[in-house]
Amino acid sequence: MSYSDKVVDHYENPRNVGSFQKDEKNVGTGLVGAPACGDVMKLQIKVSAEGIIEDAKFKTFGCGSAIASSSLVTEWIKGKTLDEAAEIKNSQIACELALPPVKIHCSVLAEDAIKAAIADYRKNQNQ
């Protein structure tokens, strides 16, 4: 199986790798894992007072497609509102990266990571 150019690009030059302090109130952390491959993915968002995602970081331990999927979504969600970010579908990620069918689950994982990060942020706000 060969990776698409976009996957290779994100894999070799991943955007926004890193972490925010988990306990900051304006940070939401999504932690997800794939049963299919044992990959783990962490996606964090930093949200402004206006509810805009100002910054995003990720750490993914997994295959090239999982890394590319999470790298790509950190670029996509920056500048979006939480509701806009929650609308990102795995099919858009898979399409952008030209993922083959066996790697679709990587894009699903990235979608789940966004949703988990948003849910965590909202939980923090309500505390």
Binding site: L31, V32, G33, A34, P35, A36, V40, K42, K59, F61, N90, I104, H105, V108, L109, D112, A113, A116
Partner: peptide, 20 residues
């Protein structure tokens, strides 16, 4: 059966945190 080909995340925060 556990579906290891299933899409989406596992729901086990403790395991995920430990593994991360």
């Amino acid at each position: 059966g556990v579906d290891l080909t299933a899409c989406g995340t596992i729901n086990d925060p403790e395991l995920l945190m430990e593994q991360m």
